[in-house]
Design a protein around this nucleic acid. Structure first.
Lengths: 196, 196
DNA sequence: CGAGTCGTTGAACGGAATCAATCGTCGTGG
DNA sequence: CCACGACGATTGATTCCGTTCAACGACTCG
């Protein structure tokens, strides 16, 4: 999907099986990671209480970008699917950032992109109604023809949207019944125009 | 609060009165902005429907960092309080980013910080219960003695937490009654230890 | 002084979470 | 190879808690 040539990787990517760990909370930050393929969950382990899913990284994302300037990771990274990850030494990356124009710009782009996505999600959560939250989200994901390829389970989508998965199922069904969307195949959703 | 010396500003900051506009949605991105003092709201104006508050920037933040790499702004910035803003020409900033090590690193830091904050907020919203969401948030804001200086109105805090302001008032009252926190003065909250 | 806003509380409603049960699919190991 | 367990998708019934609507006093600012 993305072209990572600018990263100047010569090494082969790390391969992780499902449930394998890329790094653990508290570990020293020594590398920069780009998720080329697969899915990686970032988990925080609080002193008390149960684990919290901080984020689910999908293909093309930089993993734990926020930790890049920290000494140690504040969360663990665990493969949620078989994944392929490009690594680059932290110091090497920092150096490259100063010497290689394209590199630093691209990294910044990744950061900015991430911020915009997060703000979008935040904005989304301010929508109280489950139905319009879902519609708004789908609208942002759809291409010009209204088609959406869902590359995650509906459960994960529900989590991302901050809804109980049952609610997501129900609302999707309602929207389907009312003709506002179609689901020709699992993992595929088509939005129908409903201009007010 | 923050030291912006590294930005190498020689110019005097822009002064905005309340409700004055820094830039409008769709305008060309020509400068980089750092909010030195005050409060600025980022507003998106959708084609239909009413305006949406994307974010409320407070002192020390870079404004619309996500737009820095875009051609035009995807939102408007409006002073929410009398504000002081440092501006730097976009091209100048990009240049500086490549030539000045400290500058680029600091900008990246700002970005990373922002991402971490946003993720934290996201994480927070996954807590369903209003009470524990509030407690968790306060815990992150408190210093070692449990003291919290609230630099925004409770209404804004409620918005940030994704709660109706009435709910926030009520829950704060409950927590106060049950001795889990004190409010010696407005804008000041003290958390009491309640180890399980 | 009046307009605007914040903080606060009451009452009622509604919608989403929760609990629960079923079905299908996939992977794994005996 | 098939049984079993794990997990995703789906739907029903019920509960509960946060939103919403409403009203009021205090304070600030022009």
């Amino acid at each position: 999907m993305n072209d990572w040539a600018w990263l100047g990787f010569d090494s082969t990517p790390v391969q992780l099986k499902k449930a394998e760990r890329l790094f653990g909370q508290g570990a020293k930050v020594q590398r920069m990671h780009i998720l080329v393929n697969g899915r990686v969950k970032l988990i925080r382990h609080p002193f008390d209480g149960e684990d919290v899913v901080l984020h689910v990284a999908t293909a093309g994302e930089m993993i734990a970008e926020a930790s890049f300037f920290s000494e140690v990771y504040h969360c663990s990274a665990i493969a949620d699917l078989p994944s392929e990850i490009q690594c680059i030494d932290r110091n090497e990356a920092l150096e490259k950032m100063l010497s290689d124009t394209r590199f630093s710009r691209n990294v910044m782009h990744l950061f900015a992109q991430q911020i915009r996505d997060l703000r979008g999600l935040h904005e989304l959560r301010n929508i109280r109604s489950a139905q319009s939250r879902i519609l708004t989200y789908l609208a942002t994901q759809a291409d010009s023809s209204g088609k959406i390829i869902v590359n995650m389970s509906l459960r994960d989508m529900a989590y991302k949207l901050g809804l109980a998965h049952e609610t997501l199922y129900r609302e999707l069904r309602k929207l389907e019944t009312s003709g506002q969307l179609e689901r020709p195949a699992s993992g595929e959703i088509i939005l129908r125009e409903t201009l007010a």
